[in-house]
């Protein structure tokens, strides 16, 4: 538990001291199953991260070694892939460029959300509400899909200094939602529709998102299924 918390602390540390790019890509089939991809790209901060990893500690926080990070990610994935409704979990780790790619297939959106929540919950004791236990950030109904992002990040940002905030502003969070049928409409005016009208993209910088998680809230309305 402590190890995973350390890993999350590390991600937070890197996130607030590095330029980060996150791509959150979910494809949903008509039966509610689908594929979830989550990419964290820290390659533009690799000099800084390599410098950090060369240290034992910074500002009193322990910096884990590369091997420790690897082992923590592996452990997290092992727990995650044991969850109901989750299969074909793949984790790509490129420590040369600090790019991490998670991909899995899920049986239903609800099970995907439960799997993420329960994995974090079981591994981060004392922070059970880390991802908002009673909040659903993925809601699939026939004909529509609602999504948002967990609010946990906003709590950390209040304590950042100006330099760290500027770094967050350089980072980006991209949310893509794909379907196997046409999108009729969506609620978020900042969202963009793909040319084939089967996907919607929303983009924000990490700082704005941390200040206002509702930036990525979107309800997507779908065309009726073709007979």
């Amino acid at each position: 538990m402590k190890k995973v918390y350390l890993f999350l602390t590390l991600i937070t540390l890197f996130t607030i001291s590095s330029c980060i790019e996150i791509v959150d890509d979910i494809s949903i089939n008509q039966d509610g199953s689908g594929t979830f991809k989550y990419n964290i790209n820290l390659s533009s901060s690799k000099v800084k991260i390599s410098s950090l990893l060369a240290l034992d500690s910074l500002d009193g926080k322990k910096i884990p070694t590369r091997a420790e990070i690897q082992s923590k990610i592996d452990h997290f994935i092992t727990v995650f892939e044991g969850k109901e409704g989750i299969k074909n979990v793949q984790m790509g780790k490129d420590f040369g460029n600090y790019i991490f790619r998670l991909q899995c297939d899920f049986k239903s959106v609800k099970l995907l959300q439960e799997a993420i929540k329960s994995t974090v919950k079981s591994e981060v004791k004392g922070n059970e509400d880390f991802l908002g236990d009673n909040v659903d950030w993925l809601i699939w109904k026939e004909g529509s899909f609602e999504r948002s992002v967990p609010e946990f990040s906003i709590k950390k940002v209040d304590r950042l200094n100006e330099k760290e905030i500027n770094l967050l502003k350089q980072g980006s969070y991209i949310s893509i939602t794909r379907f196997d049928r046409l999108v009729k409409d969506f609620s978020n005016k900042s969202a963009v529709m793909a040319k084939n009208k089967m996907a919607v993209m929303l983009k924000s910088n990490a700082y704005s998102l941390s200040q206002n998680p509702s930036l990525l809230e979107n309800t997507i309305y779908l065309s009726p299924l073709k007979p």
């Binding site: 790019e21 791509v23 990419n39 790209n41 390659s43 533009s44 690799k46 000099v47 460029n97 790019i99 991209i174 893509i176 794909r178 793909a194 040319k195 084939n196 089967m198 996907a199 993209m201």
Partner: peptide, 17 residues
């Protein structure tokens, strides 16, 4: 010059590094 990877998206939001 330090090498970094960025994502490029096509019109249907498929992306490559």
């Amino acid at each position: 010059p330090v090498r970094k990877l960025v994502y490029e998206y096509d019109e249907d939001f498929n992306y490559i590094e």
